[in-house]
């Protein structure tokens, strides 16, 4: 009993160590593009006209909505983007009032944030989701198997699914108008149509400078926070606001990129398949020793010894 238990413990120790030791892994490195396109949304400018929702539908060939885009009563309820709608505007009353004591609404546009190090891209089993140099988190339906791990992983709860299609369902989300922004001078449908310049399209580093300038230029008006600068390691879509972000539907999120921990674990354990190969070697050696013993016992006298 003692011999076998020691062997058991040994193998267990190796298996256990294999799942905790950093091994020969290098430190995790961000794969974020250096100067992707992005959009800066200024919540103080948005008037909730829903033109961006209309443009999104036209540009992406999405189905006709049940409620027309000029019907603003839809703003009474909070909505989320889904498989048929890639962006929505939500209205919040935060208690802010104007000079005549009327409640002032804050409108918030919601769509895929196009993270710099996206959880969905890291999670995707087939690599159907990729982060492009131009900033878009791009979905290739031809690789997708519909496992929906991207949806479980996304911290912003953005990817939506066509659950009602039995054979050919797709993951659906804002495309950042990938085709349009790939062309010279192209802008996403929503940013191009916005009548009040609430959405500014540009290179992310420039947008961060612009956002900083606006905040510094009117510190009494703006909250000193660019949402998306640090959150989950940074996002291509950025927001500035005159109200607390958590009062208008934004989550407080860590600055650590979501895939960092899991990718570190995966590469520490499985780069060059070192740990499985090592385990295979150890188990093979143990098995070799025990089977030789067994053979010796078989050929020797049967004395009931069970090692």
């Amino acid at each position: 009993m003692t011999i076998s238990r020691r062997g058991f413990l040994g193998a267990l120790g190796i298996a256990g160590a294999a799942s905790t030791m950093p091994g020969n892994a290098q430190a995790w490195q961000s794969k974020a593009p250096p100067a992707p396109y992005g959009c800066l949304v200024d919540l103080t400018r948005c008037v909730g006209c829903r033109k961006c929702e209309l443009a999104c539908k036209e540009v992406n060939g999405l189905p006709e909505p049940a409620v027309k885009f000029d019907d603003l009563t839809i703003l009474d309820a909070k909505r989320r983007p889904d498989q048929n709608v890639f962006t929505v505007i939500n209205r919040y009353y935060t208690g802010r009032i104007d000079e005549r004591d009327r409640l002032v609404p804050t409108y918030v546009k919601v769509q895929c944030m196009h993270c710099q190090d996206p959880a969905c891209v890291s999670a995707c089993i087939t690599g159907a989701l990729t982060k492009k140099e131009n900033g878009a988190v791009h979905y290739d339906v031809n690789k997708c198997i519909g496992c929906r791990y991207c949806m479980a992983a996304c911290p912003f709860e953005i990817p939506a699914y066509e659950y009602d299609r039995p054979i050919l369902p797709r993951v659906r989300k804002c495309t950042f108008c990938f085709e349009r922004i790939s062309k010279e001078g192209g802008r996403p449908g929503c940013a191009a149509i916005c009548p009040v310049e609430a959405i500014t399209f540009g290179r992310r580093p420039e947008l961060l400078r612009l956002a900083r300038n606006r905040i510094d230029g009117d510190p009494g008006k703006y909250i000193d926070h660019i949402y998306g600068e640090q959150e989950v390691g940074g996002t291509s879509w950025l927001y500035i606001s005159n109200v607390d972000f958590q009062k208008v539907g934004f989550q407080e999120l860590p600055a650590r990129p979501m895939p960092q921990t899991t990718e570190t674990i995966q590469s520490a354990l499985f780069s060059y398949l070192w740990s499985p190969l090592a385990l295979f070697g150890v188990l093979g050696a143990v098995m070799g020793v025990t089977s030789r013993k067994h053979h010796a016992a078989d050929h020797g006298k049967e004395d009931g010894h069970d090692a």
């Binding site: 890291s122 999670a123 995707c124 089993i125 087939t126 690599g127 159907a128 690789k143 997708c144 198997i145 519909g146 496992c147 929906r148 791990y149 699914y161 066509e162 659950y163 299609r165 054979i167 050919l168 369902p169 895939p259 899991t262 990718e263 995966q266 590469s267 499985f270």
Partner: peptide, 17 residues
């Protein structure tokens, strides 16, 4: 969702996943 595509991870591999 796409049961028929269950073989795809064999050819399209994401080692980070």
């Amino acid at each position: 969702g796409r049961s028929w595509a269950i073989w795809k991870p064999i050819f399209y591999q994401n080692h980070n996943s």
